[in-house]
Simulated assay, not measured.
Amino acid sequence: MVSRRELYALCREKLKKAGIDTADFDVMCIFQDMLGEKNPLFLPLEDVPEDKAERIMELTRRRSERYPLQYLLGQWEFFGYQFFVGEGVLIPRPDTELLVENVIEICRREKLTAPRIADLCSGSGCIATALKKELPAAEVYAYELSEQAMVYLKKNAEYNGADIHIISRDVMLDSDEDIPEGGFDIIVSNPPYLTGQEMSELQQEVRHEPTLALFGGNDGLDAYKAITHIWKRHIRKNGWLCYEYGDGQHEYVKNILQQNKFTNITLSRDLGGIYRAVSAQRTEEV
């Protein structure tokens, strides 16, 4: 038998030798998950059951090989809610919480008490689910193409008790199918936005995530061009379109919105000071 403190030290050292900068955090997450305790080192001398020690070591080994921590744990937190994740679905990231905050702020400012919202390229459903939880009176639609991601989307909505409309569709194809009559007050999307160059330079962990959710064309802007052009007519007069985008893409996305006659364009920075999200209003006929 091995104590919690001894096993923790062994796992941390293994990750540090593998060059994992977040070794302490990662091992703590694995311990919390496997032992079911928030503070697993509160009793450092307590022995770890053999079966759990073996599992902890196995997860540590896989993490040392740059397999994503989130996939190893099978769940990850976003906007205070838990989401199931695994291969085939994009891992929710803290930066994307800014997008949810922007939509909530628009609803408060515009006094939209029961908005109709569409989440395009929904993936795990983290955006759609968080919005439904934060705006209970909202009618939320989640559109997703990937069958693998769809499994997680449905599971996450059910797990979090979010009654949302889940629709299988390629949002980059022009069609009026599966659009509710009257359109939407707000359309939100965190589409694929990595460039060809960025895809070739991905960290090993990110290479495990679905290409469909990452690659945005050679310039990273394919989804913004298509979605803005196709979906603008499904936004009600004075409604809003909100995007997340990559570092350095803000002016390009802003130009696409301007070319499509959107106004009141606001760029938002994430906690790292990087321009990360935009909101724009459809005030003119399109």
Score class of each variant (00 low, 15 high):
residue 235 I to P: 00
residue 168 S to C: 13
residue 241 L to M: 12
residue 171 V to P: 02
residue 221 L to N: 00
residue 200 S to G: 01
residue 165 H to L: 10
residue 217 G to W: 02
residue 222 D to F: 02
residue 239 G to H: 07
residue 162 A to G: 00
residue 159 Y to I: 09
residue 226 A to C: 11
residue 206 V to I: 06
residue 151 V to Y: 12
residue 167 I to Y: 00
residue 177 E to L: 14
residue 199 M to I: 10
residue 197 Q to N: 13
residue 161 G to H: 02
residue 170 D to H: 10
residue 226 A to D: 13
residue 148 Q to H: 15
residue 164 I to Y: 00
residue 188 V to Q: 09
residue 238 N to K: 15
residue 195 T to Y: 04
residue 237 K to M: 14
residue 207 R to Y: 09
residue 219 D to W: 07
residue 156 N to E: 03
residue 200 S to I: 05
residue 243 Y to D: 01
residue 212 L to Y: 08
residue 180 P to G: 00
residue 154 K to N: 08
residue 242 C to M: 09
residue 155 K to T: 11
residue 237 K to I: 14
residue 244 E to N: 08
residue 239 G to S: 11
residue 162 A to R: 07
residue 220 G to N: 03
residue 168 S to E: 14
residue 187 I to T: 06
residue 214 L to Q: 03
residue 238 N to T: 10
residue 177 E to K: 13
residue 175 S to H: 09
residue 179 I to N: 03
residue 198 E to T: 01
residue 218 N to K: 10
residue 194 L to A: 06
residue 189 S to P: 07
residue 231 W to T: 02
residue 236 R to P: 07
residue 225 K to H: 13
residue 230 I to R: 00
residue 241 L to V: 01
residue 205 E to M: 08
residue 208 H to N: 11
residue 176 D to F: 04
residue 206 V to S: 04
residue 156 N to G: 06
residue 193 Y to R: 03
residue 210 P to W: 04
residue 195 T to M: 06
residue 171 V to W: 00
residue 191 P to Q: 02
residue 169 R to M: 11
residue 183 G to D: 05
residue 240 W to Q: 11
residue 150 M to F: 15
residue 213 A to L: 09
residue 205 E to G: 09
residue 154 K to F: 05
residue 148 Q to M: 13
residue 177 E to W: 10
residue 214 L to M: 08
residue 148 Q to E: 15
